[in-house]
Amino acid sequence: MAGAYERHGDGPHTVLVLHGWFGAASTWGALRPHLDGEEFSYVFANYRGYGGRQDVAGEYSIAESARDVLAVADELGVGSFSVVGHSMGGSVMQRVFADAPDRVRSLVGISPVPASGVPFDDETWGLFSGAADDPAHRRAIVDFTTGNRLTGVWLDAMVSQSARNSTPEAVAGHLRAWAKTDFHTEIADSEVPIKVIVGEHDPALGEDTIRATFGQWYPKLELEVMANAGHYAPDETPVALATSIESFLRER
């Protein structure tokens, strides 16, 4: 699977890392220097149409992405692993668990999309659906989901990074996937160890949303609200995020 993943570290605990809607395997660059590569082996995956797989077309569904992630684990010969998922990757993360529960050691969601999808009103859907072709829509979404508080230089860099690492078809298709896919009955009452980290400035996938979704489905949920972060904690607060992720994974 050429371009399907990038690796960091060679430790005994394998962690599959799943990017968000505007991300890719390569866009975790701010976080990687702070990860412990002696204790963990991080495998950063690309979905179809993203990063090193921009030339790979697909149906762009949550189920397809989960199958591809499991295929990466199989290719690497990894029997059990933990999964970290950011935003849309949080939905894929839960689908991986639903499909292969016996292989998953633990889950860490970073501002994760619930397994029930995300409801939109017409105006917000228009903003998000326009992001596939219009960089201004992507910029407005990143600005909104980080609390309208960060420098325009950073916003522009996030949009440029997203555009370089995705195709419009993949962005459009994956929006329908993460927003409208509901499989929460398949993971409800799961005993898997799970931590969800949300940014205090995320107006959409913040503490209240997580308690109403993940909090109802996962009895072992640990929830952390990260200070000085919005929806993009991997870029906004990478040192604090790495510390939080690994303190949880070390206990699993």
Rank of each mutant, 00 (worst) to 15 (best):
T167C: 10
D122T: 11
L205V: 10
R139P: 05
D133T: 12
L155W: 04
F214A: 09
F120R: 13
I197Q: 02
P168D: 08
I197S: 04
Q161P: 04
A172I: 08
F144M: 12
E169M: 06
A188W: 04
T213N: 15
D134F: 06
G109V: 14
P193G: 02
G130I: 02
T151Y: 08
G130L: 02
T145V: 12
E169G: 03
G199L: 01
V159S: 13
W125Q: 01
V192F: 07
D202F: 00
I110S: 07
N148S: 13
T213L: 13
D121K: 09
T145W: 02
S116M: 15
T145S: 03
D189A: 14
A212K: 09
V142P: 02
I194Y: 07
S190V: 02
V192H: 07
D143P: 03
L155T: 01
R138P: 09
L175Y: 05
V153Y: 07
A179F: 05
E169D: 08
T145L: 10
A177I: 02
S160N: 14
A188Y: 04
N148T: 13
G206A: 01
G206R: 01
R138W: 13
S162H: 14
P112G: 10
R211S: 01
H137M: 08
V142H: 11
P135Q: 15
D156I: 08
F183L: 09
V171N: 11
D133G: 04
V196D: 00
F183H: 05
D202I: 01
T181R: 05
V108A: 01
K195E: 15
P203E: 07
K195H: 13
F144I: 10
L205G: 08
S116L: 14
F214Q: 07
E186V: 04
S162D: 14
D202L: 01
N148Q: 14
P112K: 15
L205D: 10
